[in-house]
Simulated scan of single mutants.
Amino acid sequence: MHNAATQASLAGRRVVVTGGARGLGAAFVTALAAAGARVTFGDVLHEAGAALADSLAAQGHDVGYVPLDLAQPQSIHAFVENAAQRMGGIDGLINNAAITNSGGKLAHELSVQTWDAVMNVNVRGTWLVCTAAQRWLADSGHGAIVNIASDTALWGAPRLLAYVASKGAVIAMTHSLAREFGACGITVNAIAPGLTEVEATAYVPADRHAYYLEGRALRRPQVPDDVTGPVLFLLSEAARFVTGQLLPVNGGFVMH
């Protein structure tokens, strides 16, 4: 019987991360590398992605960057195949990449183009990455997927409708994929972070930050390191019998 530390180890695990060039994605990539995992990540931010990969590789970590545009199905398939070939397979997948675009607008102010862009990246893109990686994850014998949702889909954040709807779809998709992929031994779970202090949330008004801070059971700002631990746990052997679950990670702002 392995002890808990051994079960939670990610040493040598081959993990793919989408949207890994900055913010939460970069935190996931960095934490995985520190845990001894082999990582391939993708992003549309080519300079930032290449710089992060070079920095971590210079520290002796096995980390590679591959360009990825979730709005383009052919880019998704090329990314997954490239990652699998680079690492000799895939053991874990973090679906982190997403766009907001709808921030600040009321429901009737949204354009169809904005709605479609958010859905294409956040929902269709997540689905296509999962299906492209499925055979590799099944072959690994301990495949694990963690989808990054958002607690905005749990409390119904206003003026963010397209994003909230897309993250609600990711949560629902997680449940269905867990049942489908369970047949080949793949776990599929979702994390719903709260408002995290990263570059991508710099646009969020100060009153929304204050609303979160005041509503949390743990009254402090949320930082990327608050989210990396739960995600790495769900990728590990310690979570092999956990699937189809949603874990809010938001300091108790939403209790699910």
Results as ranks from 00 to 15, higher is better:
T243N: 06
S150W: 07
N101Q: 14
L56A: 05
R13D: 02
E199T: 08
F79N: 07
L218E: 10
R219Y: 00
H2N: 11
A239F: 05
G194Y: 02
V121P: 12
L32T: 04
Q85W: 02
M119H: 12
A162Y: 03
M255G: 05
A8Y: 01
A210I: 01
I90T: 14
V188Y: 02
T40P: 00
I90N: 03
G60K: 04
Y203H: 13
R14W: 03
A78R: 14
P205W: 00
E237S: 13
F28M: 14
A144K: 13
H175I: 03
V146I: 14
V17T: 13
S176R: 03
P67D: 09
T100A: 15
A165M: 14
F181H: 08
A34P: 01
L110H: 14
T114C: 10
G125K: 12
L213P: 04
P230M: 01
P73N: 00
T114W: 00
T196K: 03
R219I: 00
A183L: 12
A53T: 11
N122F: 08
Y163T: 04
Q59N: 03
Q85G: 15
A11Y: 01
Y203E: 10
E199F: 03
T187N: 12
M119Y: 06
P67W: 04
D207Q: 07
Q72V: 15
G23R: 04
A5E: 13
L93C: 03
W155L: 03
A33T: 03
T114S: 09
W155R: 02
E197G: 07
F79T: 07
A8C: 09
I145K: 02
S236N: 09
A190S: 13
F181K: 09
A217M: 08
N147Q: 09
V66W: 01
G64H: 14
L56C: 07
P221F: 00
L93M: 11
T201L: 01
V170K: 05
S102V: 07
N147D: 05
L52R: 04
I148M: 12
V123A: 13
R135E: 11
H77P: 02
G104R: 10
Y212S: 13
Y212R: 02
R179Q: 09
V123C: 06
R13G: 03
A8R: 15
D207G: 00
N82R: 15
T100G: 09
S176F: 00
K167S: 07
Q59M: 02
A4R: 11
V231C: 12
A206G: 01
A21G: 10
E199G: 13
L110V: 05
A133N: 04
G185Q: 01
A21P: 12
L232K: 04
A138C: 04
G12L: 08
K105E: 11
E81Y: 06
T100V: 15
L246T: 10
V188F: 01
A107R: 00
M1I: 11
V223D: 02
D69S: 13
I148L: 14
T228Q: 05
Q72W: 03
A53Q: 09
H209Q: 04
D116T: 13
